[in-house]
Design a protein around this nucleic acid. Sequence first.
DNA 1: CATGATTTTTAGCCATGCCTATAATTTTGT
DNA 2: ACAAAATTATAGGCATGGCTAAAAATCATG
Lengths: 217, 217
Amino acid sequence: MIRSESTEMYLKTILELGTGKEPVAISQVAERWGVTPVSANEMIKRLAEYGMIRHEPYKGVSLTETGLRQATNILRRHRLWERLLVDHLGVDWAESHDAACQLEHATAEAVTTALDAFLGHPTTCPHGNPIPDPGQPVNEAETRPLSTLEIGQQATIICIHPEETALLNYLAEHGIYPQRTVEVEEIAPLDGPLTVRVGEQRTVIGREAASRVHVAV
Amino acid sequence: MIRSESTEMYLKTILELGTGKEPVAISQVAERWGVTPVSANEMIKRLAEYGMIRHEPYKGVSLTETGLRQATNILRRHRLWERLLVDHLGVDWAESHDAACQLEHATAEAVTTALDAFLGHPTTCPHGNPIPDPGQPVNEAETRPLSTLEIGQQATIICIHPEETALLNYLAEHGIYPQRTVEVEEIAPLDGPLTVRVGEQRTVIGREAASRVHVAV
DNA sequence: CATGATTTTTAGCCATGCCTATAATTTTGT
DNA sequence: ACAAAATTATAGGCATGGCTAAAAATCATG
Ligand SMILES: [Mn+2]
Ligand SMILES: [Mn+2]
Ligand SMILES: [Mn+2]
Ligand SMILES: [Mn+2]
């Protein structure tokens, strides 16, 4: 089985979109990875042949044992790189995501191990997402999207998920980072934006962005 | 112009094989990069179209201004990564070369800059080769191959060039590292091996390997 | 249960980078 | 000067990973 950037990104995409139980629609994979549904279908066929994923027609795809292990390792490399980039090299918080997305496919096993040790076995990426242990699948934290909070509710920002550089840049501009405390002050109708208080500041962020910010009450 | 691993490695290979003046034979490029001469020829044609290299038929290829800049940047990334891997992450001295050869093609500009700053603007890789300044071509040090020393001559090991993991492993096993002092004790005939003293130890290394160890008397 | 929407498949095409086999060309050494 | 060696080019293939256009299959819903 080939281990190209392409196949790795398909696996990672399926892992990131999957809630764990229900299979992920191929159209969603296609959209997130930025290819046509036809192309995604072709690749899904190949990955299924290689035993990395299972395809239930008209339902979607899910990772096999092998596929899950592989995808988890990619995620692990990604998040370890982000930690190095942000904490030690001083790379921009939002920019680190894209940089890590390139590095994750070019990382030898020995480098991953050494990186993890150097960083002191970190448990989360700079965007709050858990760094899986080698071989182990991630166990998601107990969180809910910021967009589900009610007016007046306070919460702590846990993580941004799924990550995307445009989203991270947007959130950084609005002071939305993990660990910070937020309180919803206003919710505009018609899927409109949320007015939130973060620390001392008050900002307005879109509903879709807010649904990618996960908090713990 | 495409910036694939393939095109980048062709450029880096041409830079590493070139002494600066005379063009590099395509057959040499093919051999070092591990493809057939036909394949190398095809790629050389493309790279020439993109204005990265010049091809003098039956003579060889040389880098254009643009190509030299690009190749130098790749070399720069490679050697910066090696420094991080060896000095900070504790990756094996010999293994670092292959690991860096993967990373060098997946490194965003911002990462290179940050890496350089984090490392304190190092001037050489762990194998003694100079790290070029951004945009500037490398200026080779005043050295000669260990294989050209005469019996009794003492010298300081400066660098290993061109690098190759198998070679680095071999040299590491024999205690041949930059900065160490060597003295040639015996030279076997018929292109045979050299017996050298490195520090307190005496070892025998092949002539070809010795020709890749550059020293200053 | 029919019909429209979604999902999947098929067919045909393209670029990249490899390959082998073979032929043409140029250089070089005797 | 000529034959051997090296270099270059041509032809035909292959795998990967994309694409569009169009058809077929299934799902969902009124
Ligand atoms: Mn990636
Ligand atoms: Mn992250
Ligand atoms: Mn490389
Ligand atoms: Mn090196």
